[in-house]
Amino acid sequence: MKITFWIFLFIIFYTYVGYGIFLYALVRIRRIIKGKRNSNFDLTNLPTCTLIIAVFNEASILEEKIKNTKELVYPDGKINFLFVTDGSTDESPEIIKKHEGISLMHSPERRGKIHAMHRAMNEVHTEIVIFTDANTFLNKEALINIARHYQDRTVGAVAGEKRVQIDETADATAGEGFYWKYESALKKWDSELYSVVGAAGELFSIRRDLYIPVPPDTVLDDFMISLRIAEKGYRIVYEPDAFALETSSASISEELKRKIRIAAGGIQSVVRLKSLLNPFHNFVLTFQYISHRVLRWTITPFLMIAAVIINAIIVWQTGEWLYMVLLAGQILFYALAIIGLTFEKRNIRIKALFIPYYFCVMNYAVLAGIKRYAFAEQKVTWEKAKRK
């Protein structure tokens, strides 16, 4: 039982902290042996590009989004802007129609974002395609900073950085900002070692000729599309100087909606991307994929529960002080998470408590997402989380 406990504890630590430490060490070793990856680009020969923005009932923010889109820097004659408003029942299509230089695709039928993307891709003929969301705002040089990487023929996709804007009154969603900063560091090191393991829909791009339509019931379309390209042997590069800025979720309950959907899509992706679990296909990619994604979306949340139970049994049977300290540490951590929950309900803001609270919410979301996937409760269309 002690051996089992230490194995579980190691996997938990490795999933959330250890992989980051080990990954950074591997990156440092790679730099010593091979040097840093090439960052010299010819900005006079950028590829043709289409920016696709999927929209669903975003009339309240569309004018600001269009203004941001038109301010993006890219060579004249090499960029197209395409808004897709399938299923929108507000004034979104009419708002877009008023603006010159922007193409609109609209269908009154709501069949989900992935279906809208498939429709749009059938009309795109540029060398690369960049996807972003209607509720995010890009830095002016985002498109150039993404497109320059395609001068390397081994690159099949480029992931931008998601940045969460946290204001001074932020509550438990402060944990969201901390989480994305940590994720960004991991993605930067993943990219330098070999490849990012999946892109986020807020901002990512692909080579047009590598696009493979994913099944219409796919929940994490961005993740699946990018990793299908990695399956072919192409790298997914991370570009932190191309970023999408969005506000945090309106509350932790709104963030929980999003996390459960992502977890359901995550386990769906693991089931469908079986080839990435085969280390003989691409050992480094498999190592990164399992370490960064699969463990979080499968066994680790269950091991966290099991570790507490096994630890308590060991203490009850042996009374050894080391296991008493470890049990006390676990109980304290979860107690801080419960206090964070209590404070959020009372609108008391102590950010130090919101990190353990957010961490526990994330792992609860995985358990709920696995249940949702197992009972086929996750639809491809979803109620988007409200944001501040």
Score class of each variant (00 low, 15 high):
Glu94Phe: 05
Ala25Pro: 03
Lys274His: 05
Tyr74Ser: 10
Ala368Gly: 00
Phe131Ser: 06
Glu320Asp: 15
Ile12Met: 07
Ser205Cys: 13
Pro213Ile: 04
Ala174Ser: 12
Thr286Pro: 05
Leu341Met: 14
Arg346Thr: 05
Lys384Leu: 07
Arg207Leu: 13
Tyr238Thr: 05
Ile225Thr: 12
Asn139Asp: 13
Tyr364Val: 08
Val219Ser: 09
Ile166His: 01
Gly87Ala: 14
Ile130Phe: 07
Glu239Lys: 03
Leu104Asp: 01
Glu127Ile: 05
Leu104Trp: 04
Tyr334Glu: 03
Phe302Gln: 12
Ile350Asp: 01
Gly340Trp: 03
Lys181Thr: 01
Asp171Asn: 12
Gly198Phe: 07
Trp321Glu: 14
Gly329Leu: 14
Arg30Gln: 15
Phe22Thr: 07
Arg258Asp: 08
Tyr179His: 11
Phe333Met: 12
Ile252Met: 09
Gly319Leu: 09
Glu255Met: 01
Tyr334Arg: 07
Leu46Ser: 02
Ser269Thr: 13
Tyr194Phe: 14
Arg37Ser: 12
Glu254Pro: 07
Phe302Leu: 15
Pro47Lys: 15
Leu62Lys: 02
Ile146Ser: 08
Gln330Cys: 00
Glu71Asp: 14
Pro75Gly: 10
Thr286Ser: 15
Val270Met: 03
Glu91Arg: 09
Leu9Gly: 03
Ala174Gln: 03
Pro93Ala: 03
Thr50Gly: 08
Ile206Glu: 12
Tyr211Ala: 06
Leu43Pro: 03
Phe10Pro: 06
Asn311Arg: 07
Gly18Glu: 07
Trp321Phe: 14
Ser103Lys: 12
Leu138Thr: 07
Asp76Gly: 04
Tyr194Pro: 02
Tyr16Ser: 10
Glu64Met: 01
Glu64Leu: 03
Ile95Met: 00
Ala352Pro: 00
Asn135Trp: 05
Leu367Trp: 09
Ser88His: 08
Ile252His: 02
Asn135His: 14
Gly177His: 02
His118Cys: 04
Ile267Val: 13
Tyr238His: 14
Glu254Asn: 11
Lys274Thr: 08
Asp221Ile: 08
Met121Phe: 14
Gly265Phe: 09
Val380Ile: 10
Asn363Gly: 05
Phe131His: 14
Val308Ile: 15
Met121Glu: 10
Gly369Cys: 12
Ile310Tyr: 10
Glu192Ala: 00
Gly201Lys: 01
Ile166Leu: 13
Pro279Phe: 02
Leu353Asn: 11
Val366Trp: 04
Val219Ala: 11
Arg349Asp: 05
Ser251Asp: 10
Thr50Ser: 14
Ala54Leu: 05
Asn38Glu: 07
Ile370Arg: 14
Gly160Cys: 02
Ser88Leu: 06
Trp382Pro: 00
Pro75Phe: 10
Ile32Phe: 12
Phe8Glu: 13
Ile206Gly: 04
Ala374Ile: 11
Leu210Thr: 04
